[in-house]
Structure formats: C-alpha cells, structure tokens
C-alpha cells in the first residue's frame, strides 16, 4: 500500500527517471499531479493478432485508487473505423473477446472492464476502461519498509515495463 501523497511524489520521480516518453512505443506522455497518461503504438505482437482490424493505439492511464490505496493501471484500445455516411475516418474503442490473450498479459493479471464515472473532466469521452485489479498489488510488488521509497518504481516494472518488453 502507498499513501496518496507518497504516490504523487513517487509518480513525478518515476516520470523523470523511467523516461517512458523515450520508449520507442510511446507516442505521447502526459503527466498530471496524480496521473500519468501514455499513448502507445500498437506493439508488433499485438498487431499480429489483429486480423484485418486497423488498430490505432493503446491508451494507458495510471491513477490512484482511494479504495485500495494502490496505483491502478487502466487501458483501452482504439481502432480506426470508416464512417461511410460522413466520409471520414473515426476512432472507436475496441473490445477484443479475450483481452488477456490479445495483449499477451501474464497469467497472474486479473483484467476487467469497468466504468470510471468520476472522470467528469471530459464528460463526452467514454468512461469505459479495462483495469488491472489491484487487490494483490502489495504482495506482487513487495511492501517492506526499507524498500518503500521505490514502491512505485517496482510497480511500474511489474505492471507496465515487463509487459512492454514482452510485446515490443
């Protein structure tokens, strides 16, 4: 577990030190006081599972869960769709039948769809996200007092960076 203030502090540190914005898959990275939003290119491994779909990008969002007092990782997939009526290409969310296989996520990952209704900053945007269930985070990341300063760095490593290594 990590307290909110400590999470915010470590988030800024991780942003500077992990330099996710330099990752070849990263299209854009937006840091807020308590959130990190990353736009990722579709990794090769995922692209190979797309069939004829034209995927655009993966949107990843890291935010703080007040309930679990843990960082949580949200993500969603965007695909291009041609709107014949208006003769334009639009972006829409894509929900594969089995998201875990589709993204080649590790077996311990519990991923579900949920609504994040409190996100009133952009009311016209979809509040639907996949999220990785955080209830075992402390056990997965390791939570002893001496290593607490690096809690979020370890979390990034387990929840995001390892996955990027696998799928790139």
């Amino acid at each position: 577990m990590i307290q909110y203030d400590e999470y915010c502090k470590q988030l800024q540190k991780c942003y500077q030190e992990l330099r996710i914005y330099d990752d070849p898959l990263c299209q854009g990275c937006n840091i807020l006081p308590d959130e990190l939003v990353i736009q990722l290119r579709i990794p090769k491994m995922v692209e190979s599972l797309c069939d004829s779909r034209s995927l655009s990008n993966i949107e990843v969002r890291i935010k703080y869960s007040q309930i679990y007092q843990e960082p949580i990782l949200l993500l969603r997939l965007w695909e291009f769709e041609y709107d014949d009526e208006n003769d334009v290409q639009i972006l829409k969310q894509y929900f594969p039948k089995n998201i875990k296989d589709f993204l080649s996520l590790e077996s311990w990952v519990q991923i579900e769809l949920d609504i994040f209704s409190n996100d009133n900053k952009f009311p016209l945007r979809s509040p639907v996200w996949y999220y990785i269930h955080p209830c075992d985070t402390s056990a997965i990341v390791g939570d002893n007092e001496e290593a607490h300063n690096d809690y979020l760095s370890r979390w990034f490593s387990v929840f995001l960076l390892n996955w990027l290594e696998i799928v790139r």
Binding site: P96, K97, P127
Partner: peptide, 16 residues
C-alpha cells in the same frame, strides 16, 4: 459510450 459493453455475456456480469 457511457455504458459498459457486454463482451463475455452474462459471465461478465457475474465477474463484475
């Protein structure tokens, strides 16, 4: 866009 899509039928409801 404001609704949770059902991808996995009623199984998804139970999981949720």
């Amino acid at each position: 866009h404001n609704l949770l899509p059902l991808i996995d039928g009623i199984n998804q409801v139970e999981k949720y």
